[in-house]
Write a protein that binds this DNA or RNA. Structure first.
Length: 321
RNA sequence: GGCGCGAUAGCCAAGUGGUAAGGCACGGGUCUGCAACACCCUUAUCACCGGUUCAAAUCCGGUUCGCGCCU
C-alpha cells in the first residue's frame, strides 16, 4: 500500500538561496522533471523580476509551470494544484521523478497534502458585497459577522485582515460549513505522496546580501524595460501578476509615484521581508528537512550527496548498488 | 579662547514640570481560492554629574561630545 504512493521531491527555501541551480543538478541525477512552485514564474514575459530559470540554466531538464500563463490571467493555488497534480502523474507515468521547486509555500502545501479547496461557483457577487461593506462600514463589522457564524475563525483571524475574514465568510456562505472546521480536518490529512521536503537555507545575513545583489542585477538586466513592456501590453497594478515583487515597485516608479532610487530601496526591503516570511512558513511545516548551505561549506556536491541519501532511505529513488 | 544651538531606542523623530507619541529597520508570528498577497506582535526611562520640586526628558548649574559663528 505504502509503495503505491507516487514519489515526490520538494525543494524550496527563501528567495535567492540558490534553489534553481541546485534543482537542475538534482533533476539530472535522479532523472527528474521540475514542476515550478512559484506564483510568478508561471507568467510569460515576467523573466527578470521573477528571477526565472533561463533555458540555458535548465540544461535540458524538463520544466513545467513556467511561462504557462498570461500575466493578465489570474493564477492561484487551486489552479496550481490542479496543474501540478496533473504533471506529477504524467511525470511518474514516464518513469521519472517529479521535483517541486519554488518558494511559494502555500502552493507546495496545497499539492503535498492534497488540500481540498471546495469548489465555488462563479458568484463573485457575495464577495463583492462584502468588500463593499468593508469599505463603507469598516473591517470590524465584517469581523463581527464572522464571529456570529464561526467564532473560532473570528478568534484566529485578526479583524484587520479583511481578505481572510471575507474568505471565511464566503466559505460559510457557500458551504454552510465553518472554515475553521474544514481547515482543521484538512490539516490532519496525510500526504498522498512518498515525499522528501527539502528546505534549502543559509545564514540570514547571506540571504539578505544576495537579495540586494540580485535586485541590482535585475536593474542592470533591464527590469524597467520588462515592466514597461508589460504595462504597454495592458498589465495594471491590480492584477495578481503585477503584485509580484519587482513589478509593483517599478510600476509605481513608472507611474511617477516614486523615484527610481526609492523604488529600488523598497524592492530590496520588501524582498528581505518576503524571505523572512518564507522562513517562518517553512519552520512550522511538518516533515521538512532543512539543508543549511553553510553547514555543508557551500559545497554543492556534498549537499547533493546528502539529499540523495535521504531519497534512498525514503525509497523515493532506488538504492545505488 | 568666547558666544549660540543641539544631545530622546539601530535610524528618523514628537514631547518644554506629572511619570516617554509615531514611523522605519531588526526579530518573532498568522496563513487551507488573490499567498512575491493580506495581517498581527515586539524595542528606551530621555549624553553624564549635581541641584530645585511632592513630581524633571522637560527648570537651574557644571562636564563631555557635535554643529555654527566670533576673536
Amino acid at each position: 500500500m505504502e509503495q503505491r504512493k507516487l514519489p515526490l521531491v520538494i525543494l524550496t527555501g527563501p528567495t535567492a538561496v540558490g534553489k534553481t541551480r541546485l534543482s537542475v543538478e538534482l533533476a539530472k541525477r535522479i532523472n527528474g522533471e521540475i514542476i515550478s512552485a512559484d506564483s510568478m514564474q508561471v507568467y510569460r514575459g515576467m523573466d527578470i523580476g521573477s528571477a526565472k530559470v533561463t533555458p540555458e540554466e535548465m540544461q535540458g531538464v524538463v520544466h513545467h509551470l513556467i511561462d504557462e500563463f498570461d500575466p493578465k490571467e489570474e493564477f492561484h493555488v487551486v489552479r496550481f494544484q490542479e496543474y501540478a497534480r496533473k504533471y506529477i502523474h504524467e511525470i511518474c507515468s514516464r518513469g521519472k521523478i517529479p521535483i517541486l521547486v519554488g518558494g511559494t509555500g502555500f502552493y507546495i502545501q496545497a499539492v503535498l497534502y492534497d488540500i481540498n479547496f471546495t469548489e465555488n461557483g462563479s458568484d463573485s457577487s457575495y464577495r463583492e458585497s462584502l468588500e463593499h461593506l468593508a469599505k463603507t462600514e469598516g473591517a470590524e463589522v465584517l469581523h463581527r459577522m464572522l464571529r456570529e457564524v464561526d467564532p473560532e475563525s473570528a478568534d484566529a483571524i485578526h479583524a484587520n485582515n479583511v481578505k481572510r475574514v471575507i474568505r471565511a465568510l464566503e466559505f460559510y456562505h457557500e458551504t454552510g460549513q465553518k472554515i475553521s472546521e474544514h481547515n482543521e480536518a484538512e490539516h490532519r490529512k496525510e500526504s498522498p505522496y512518498r515525499f522528501a521536503y527539502f528546505v534549502l537555507n543559509d545564514e540570514r545575513e547571506t540571504i539578505y546580501r544576495n537579495i540586494d545583489l540580485r535586485v541590482d542585477q535585475m536593474m542592470e538586466q533591464g527590469l524597467i524595460n520588462e515592466v514597461k513592456a508589460l504595462k504597454e501590453q495592458g498589465c495594471t497594478r491590480d492584477m495578481v501578476s503585477m503584485q509580484g515583487l519587482g513589478y509593483k515597485e517599478i510600476l509605481d516608479y513608472l507611474a511617477g509615484d516614486q523615484t527610481l532610487e526609492e523604488a529600488v530601496r523598497i524592492l530590496k526591503r520588501d524582498t528581505r521581508h518576503f524571505a523572512k516570511r518564507q522562513l517562518t512558513w517553512f519552520r512550522r511545516e511538518r516533515d521538512v528537512i532543512w539543508v543549511d548551505k553553510n553547514k555543508y561549506d557551500y559545497d554543492t556536491e556534498q549537499i547533493l550527496r546528502v539529499m540523495m541519501q535521504v531519497l534512498e532511505v525514503k525509497e523515493i529513488i532506488q538504492r545505488r548498488s
